[in-house]
């Protein structure tokens, strides 16, 4: 029983011919594998290696270097939230906090119930004028607010049966989002020293302080 389907492996075998040197096919091949499987496990990487006639250790070395290759399952909808400087200056940390609660996960390695959602904090996504922003389902979302996050989650849940809590799928697959009353901002907000927070909070949450790409560097 192989991890990747025979027709995908056949497709992967076609890739090397498209490049001046066959090795360049490794990333496009891993892309195809990840698209089919959702992530890259050791079997998939070995099969890609075999199809490209490369050493499995080499292929794994490439896959572990790049952050867009996932080595563990992610949710069906994976939120890539930018928390680099320009986004943090405009509230990215609050977005991550809200998102975590909204999809009910403890941290970046966790997947929500039914395998639907997961998230990751990422570095600058090159759309800083729309900060805070994120990438979800191969699209960018701009000027994020808690409400926008809630709407996106409700929308992605739309194809699920009606759930407790009053959000239900309307006919036609559209999701009805009950309008949440937006409270007026607190008249005299508590003193906030800075949106850039103390490190303790972040380190615990990121769980990725040691860059994984350095393994075996």
């Amino acid at each position: 029983m192989s991890a990747l389907s025979p027709h995908l492996l056949a497709e992967i075998k076609e890739l090397p011919a498209r490049y001046p040197q066959p090795r360049s096919a490794v990333m496009p091949a891993l892309d195809l594998a990840q698209e089919e499987l959702g992530y890259l496990n050791p079997e998939a990487m070995s099969e890609v290696a075999a199809a490209l006639e490369l050493d499995p250790g080499y292929v794994e070395g490439v896959a572990t270097f790049y952050t867009l290759f996932h080595l563990a399952p992610t949710g069906k909808h994976h939120f890539y939230v930018c928390t680099n400087l320009s986004c943090t200056l405009r509230g990215a940390d609050e977005i991550v906090e809200h998102l975590k609660k909204a999809i009910a996960v403890t941290g970046p390695d966790a997947v929500s119930a039914e395998g639907l959602f997961s998230y990751e904090e990422v570095e600058c996504l090159g759309a800083c004028e729309f900060a805070p922003m994120m990438r979800l389902d191969r699209r960018y979302y701009y000027d994020l607010t808690a409400e926008k996050i809630d709407d996106l989650i409700a929308d992605r849940k739309g194809h699920l049966p009606a759930r407790r809590g009053g959000r239900r799928a309307a006919p036609g697959g559209e999701t009805q989002v009950p309008s949440v009353p937006v409270e007026a901002p607190h008249p005299s907000p508590p003193v906030r020293k800075s949106a850039l927070r103390a490190p303790g909070e972040r380190v615990a949450r990121e769980g990725r302080d040691v860059p994984r790409k350095k393994k075996g560097a």
Binding site: E97, T145, A146, E183, P185, H186, V191, R192
Partner: peptide, 17 residues
């Protein structure tokens, strides 16, 4: 550093959170 944050529609009000 700091003082109260400027009123800005773009930020999530911390207190509501």
């Amino acid at each position: 550093v700091g003082g109260p944050p400027a009123a800005s529609g773009r930020h999530l009000p911390r207190d509501r959170d």
